[in-house]
């Protein structure tokens, strides 16, 4: 008898005892009760702080409303038309897209190379990892204030550049409308590269060393091993990073607000700074709500599409249903 138990493979399911019909019905009711009990608090919070506010914002967005008195001036979709046809908002969408694309094109290769470097056994690896990750720990507001001060003309950055003989690279970092967006992108990269590196380092830990060894035995070069063995296995991590990065780029606010307020001449306005500038600061809460809904729809559409086409194979079974 004991021999029979030990020969059962460890992963095989424990056979269920056949249940009588009455017990099954009772257990189903119980399951439902348990579900209701456990899910209700979360659902109430989710509805109260996410779903209802979205609904309320959508409702406000149909009115011209300055925040005082009743909602009486119904304007239909005029707020949406005004926002989408405005040059400044179009520019803001463009700036968000530029940041999103630059993030993928610049930060991704940089993160992967740094992660691979820091995955090697080199002297001071822990220290270097910490250095790369440190900026991510700072709040965005602190980052913004530090860089705002360092990027002033003749400030820290300019002095360093001049000191190492690169004075020719000195720019009016935050004052030149054609440069300011890229300056902000550099700061974003400085701040968020550590996050990508840590994520990818974790991914690299999941690449079995046997596979590298096998590839090496088969005569694959270092580059071929990286390209055909390591990168494909990093796929899920990279896809999640891209998702987080794009959503982050679309919501970009704190850093821009503190460093430039979207200026000069709207050259660094993002959708979120536009929302605060034209919604809150101008007491145009109906219009601001419309902008918020547009921002929400863009983020939501991206999330759905990305989920459908890119993340599907990573999350299959986890998020897309059990069967």
């Amino acid at each position: 008898m004991s021999a029979a138990i030990t020969t059962r493979p460890p992963t095989a399911p424990v056979p269920h005892a056949p249940a009588a019909g009455g017990t099954r019905r009772r257990s189903r009711t119980r399951t439902r009760l348990e579900l209701a009990l456990l899910l209700t608090p979360a659902l109430v919070l989710f509805a109260g702080f996410v779903l209802i506010p979205i609904g309320v914002a959508a409702y406000y967005s149909l009115y011209s409303w300055n925040g005082f008195g009743p909602l009486s001036d119904f304007v239909g979709f005029q707020n949406y038309v005004d926002a989408l046809s405005g040059e400044v908002f179009q520019g803001a969408i463009g700036h968000n897209l530029i940041i999103a694309v630059l993030s993928i094109v610049v930060q991704l290769p940089l993160s992967i190379s740094l992660a691979m470097l820091l995955n090697r056994k080199i002297r001071g690896r822990t220290f270097l990892r910490m250095v790369v990750f440190a900026p991510y720990v700072l709040s965005e507001a602190v980052t913004a204030v530090i860089w705002l001060l360092m990027l002033q003309p003749g400030g820290f950055v300019d002095s360093i550049l001049r000191g190492i003989g690169l004075g020719g690279l000195v720019q009016l970092w935050l004052a030149d409308p054609s440069i300011v967006l890229y300056t902000l992108f550099l700061v974003i990269t400085w701040k968020y590269i550590g996050f990508g590196v840590i994520l990818l380092l974790a991914g690299l830990q999941g690449v079995p060393p046997e596979l590298r060894e096998a590839a090496a035995l088969d005569g694959a070069s270092a580059w071929q091993t990286t390209r055909h063995v390591v990168l494909p296995l990093l796929g899920p991590t990279i896809r999640i990073w891209v998702f987080l990065s794009v959503i982050g780029s679309l919501q970009l606010f704190d850093l821009v607000w503190i460093m430039t307020l979207g200026g000069p001449a709207n050259a660094s306005t993002t959708m979120a700074t536009y929302l605060v500038d034209h919604g809150f600061k101008r007491y145009e809460f109906g219009f601001g709500s419309a902008v918020a809904v547009i921002l929400f729809i863009i983020c939501f559409l991206f999330a759905l599409l990305y989920q459908r086409f890119a993340l599907r194979r990573d999350t299959d079974g986890a998020l897309t249903g059990v069967r």
Binding site: V50, P53, V56, V276, A292
Partner: peptide, 16 residues
């Protein structure tokens, strides 16, 4: 997906 921050803040505050 995390709900988008400005919208949620804006509307949650109004709601509350």
């Amino acid at each position: 997906m995390r709900s988008n921050k400005p919208l949620a803040l804006f509307a949650a505050a109004a709601f509350v």
